[in-house]
């Protein structure tokens, strides 16, 4: 198998995913509506209730809308990661995942390509969201928008790998709805997306600990710092390690010899 074969296959998988996303207008709109409602309704309402002290990466007092924007970028990627794993459970039930799995390429490569494809879609959504936020005068330094790209790549891959991991454990779609509630909401609310860690510490030590170890918090911090032209080393290392961990388990999960595939029976 040549390198060209690998490249063609990866581009094929990414192209298919992007094309599907662009042509499914409802999916595009609903992916944007969710964070925009949080931004325009929730954040606007809470602006007065929440006072935020100056803390890095911000060097001045900021509005609450400004604070939650990176968290909402993370939210887009979190939903996208879960949604693409939902589509994998669906694909597996419908059979198109089988088509991918029998291609003459290593399975880890096919799964990684699928992850990259999902991440590409989420990055597209984040930039459209940031453009709308910009028009609402939530502006970041211009270099932040460029630095954000590699950060989004990594956070998207990490959250996608988490979804992939979950999809390898879930046998049927019905079980997935429960997991959405048990994964997405706890991850989102127990993170730094909506409130900074020090605020959480004031109210609950346990919540503070949970939020600190939550990989989604670190993903949000990586995005937040990148958007303001800075690199948060701890968040970068944490996100990288969790990505490697989640994707390794997911690859084992999809392996024909080791994993959960053999236990599931023929779908």
């Amino acid at each position: 198998m040549s390198l060209t074969h690998y490249m063609r296959a990866m581009l094929g998988i990414i192209g298919r995913e992007l094309w599907r996303f662009i042509t499914q207008r409802e999916r595009f709109i609903s992916a944007l509506v969710r964070p925009l409602v949080w931004l325009f309704v929730f954040a606007a309402g809470f602006r007065a209730a929440l006072g935020l002290a100056i803390a890095p990466p911000y060097d001045t007092y900021i509005l609450y809308e400004v604070y939650i924007t990176p968290g909402l970028c993370g939210m887009i990627q979190l939903f996208n990661g879960m949604q693409s794993s939902l589509s994998m459970v669906y694909d597996r039930e419908m059979g198109s995942m089988r088509l991918l799995m029998v291609a003459p390429l290593p399975r880890w490569f096919l799964l990684l390509s699928k992850l990259l494809a999902g991440t590409g879609v989420s990055i597209l959504q984040v930039y459209v969201f940031l453009l709308i936020a910009y028009m609402y005068e939530i502006e970041a330094p211009w270099q932040g928008y460029f630095l954000l790209l590699p950060a989004l790549m990594l956070t998207g891959l990490m959250l996608g790998a988490l979804g992939l991991l979950l999809s390898s454990f879930i046998k049927q779609l019905e079980n997935f709805a429960g997991v959405m509630n048990f994964v997405i909401f706890p991850m989102f609310f127990m993170s730094t997306a909506l409130y900074p860690l020090w605020k959480l510490k004031e109210s609950s030590k346990i919540l503070y600990a949970l939020a600190s170890y939550n990989p989604f918090s670190q993903a949000v911090e990586l995005i937040r710092f990148a958007l303001y032209g800075q690199l948060n080393h701890y968040a970068l290392a944490y996100t990288l390690v969790t990505f490697i961990l989640f994707s390794s388990i997911a690859i084992v999960g999809y392996s024909p010899s080791k994993g959960m595939m053999a236990r599931k029976g023929i779908g």
Partner: peptide
Amino acid sequence: QTTLDVDLTVQQNLHYHAALYG
């Protein structure tokens, strides 16, 4: 079970397969 992507055209489905086979 059918493994075609119903949202794509016939040739898009086939091109996807061709890409997977390099």
